[in-house]
Design a protein around this nucleic acid. Structure first.
Lengths: 134, 134
DNA sequence: ATCATTATTATTATTATTTAAAATAAAATA
DNA sequence: TATTTTATTTTAAATAATAATAATAATGAT
């Protein structure tokens, strides 16, 4: 069972570059519109497929909160996020990954744990400031 | 701005009971089919709306991994899950919630953190056993 | 460079989820 | 209980994401 070999196409290149050029954790649709400026006859299906491929290759992260729509992150290293319960903005947290969590989980479950995903819910500094004024 | 008052309708009651009657973290569609056995002319939109309402009321949890479809959990207390990267099954982990994480995140961000969600990715005992035999 | 192979694309259709609007049912009040 | 108010339901339509397929483009070998 030979594993399917990946290719770097110009569509994929543009999608990855667009995602890496922002820190805003954009949606697939936003990426599609940006990439379309460079490759006008790009299709949305191609964007979704490539985002999934890039995710599987470990080049990007998919962040799915609730069931509305997914956001993507051009930084593939495991890191934590905070979702603002007020405005919905997603921010990177400058906080080290807690590796011990995997060990604890492995003990609890009794089988292998490879990694984890952690998201915090709270207020972003901007919304917290607004709350203070009420 | 008076907050909208919630009602407990028979549809909502059935949806919640169905979800509480299983430990399998079912999808909206599965819940719909089960609930339909009790309320035959229930509509799928009602299931989705009520699952969202129950989530907002803190009675259930929504688990969204990747972009395929959401799973729901009748246990609203914060607890951790493990997703099997092999078979996709979602299991509850018998492991205490690490409250200190919120404190650390709050320091890193500089504004309020209320709670967090944590998911582990690994192999379920069943798939791990299968791997051993290869 | 040419040819063969195989992944990727665009297009189209399908599935998952949300939203809109009119009809119904629950809660509050008379 | 009848009436009013407002949330919720059903139905239907809209949006987000995935999958199928034939056409295209990238890779490897000549």
């Amino acid at each position: 069972m030979a594993k399917k070999q990946r290719r770097m196409t110009k569509q994929k290149r543009v999608i990855l570059d667009v995602l890496r050029s922002t820190t805003s954790h954009p949606t697939a649709d936003w990426i599609y519109n940006e990439a379309k400026k460079i490759l006008p006859n790009l299709s949305l299906g191609t964007v979704y497929r490539n985002l999934n491929n890039l995710k599987e290759e470990g080049k990007i992260l998919e962040l799915s909160y609730g069931s509305t729509y997914s956001r993507f992150d051009g930084n593939p290293e495991n890191h934590y996020h905070c979702v603002c319960v007020e405005c919905g903005k997603v921010a990177d947290l400058d906080m080290p990954v807690v590796e011990e969590l995997d060990k604890k989980a492995q003990e609890a479950q009794g089988s292998s744990i490879f990694y984890h995903r952690l998201e915090f819910y709270g207020l972003c500094p901007h919304c917290e400031e607004k709350e203070m004024k009420n």
